[in-house]
Amino acid sequence: MEIAHYLQLVLWAILVNNFVLAQFLGICPFLGVSRKIESAIGMSIAVVFVITAASVICWLLYYTVLLPFHLGFLRTIVFILVIAALVQFVEMVIRKVSPSLFQALGIYLPLITTNCAVLGAALLAITKDFNFMKTLVYALGSSIGFGLVLVLFAGIRQRLDIVPAVPRILRGMPIALVTSAILALAFLGFAGLVKM
């Protein structure tokens, strides 16, 4: 029963309530980074780790420090600082442990701080009153959903760039947005899959 519930939550976060296509979180990296499949995969892995870790740490801080001291209103400031510190920490660890991965991710790592999906996941877990396990599963599912769409879209975009049929006025950002509209329409088909 419990396991089934968590599986439902994962499916819901990946397909039904997708971060990019249903909740509009993390649109900037979605439009900016997704030009090559390799960099999209690298970015996705980093984001999955940062979102999951940040949501869990923010949840713990909120319920063990902020709420007991009646400082709930400070959560936006505290969460963004936690995220900035975490991204810095991840950057340092990756640089020490695996210089080759650091080379591959290099430029995308600092950008994660201003990815609204990270702060969004941490805040949504609090506003939805999730417990610790649910927060962990929700953050993991949502970030995998983000990565999935990022990689899917990178694949489409690689082809879009070489298609000559796109009208000149639509080239670049406009056609990317129209394509995401069609992708979002496809994801609407998952709407009835899981009820949360």
Binding site: L170, I175, A176, L177, V178, S180, A181, A184, L185
Partner: peptide
């Protein structure tokens, strides 16, 4: 719904 948002901004 979300698709309309992407379409409006793109156009």
């Amino acid at each position: 719904l979300p698709p309309g948002a992407f379409l409006t901004l793109g156009l």
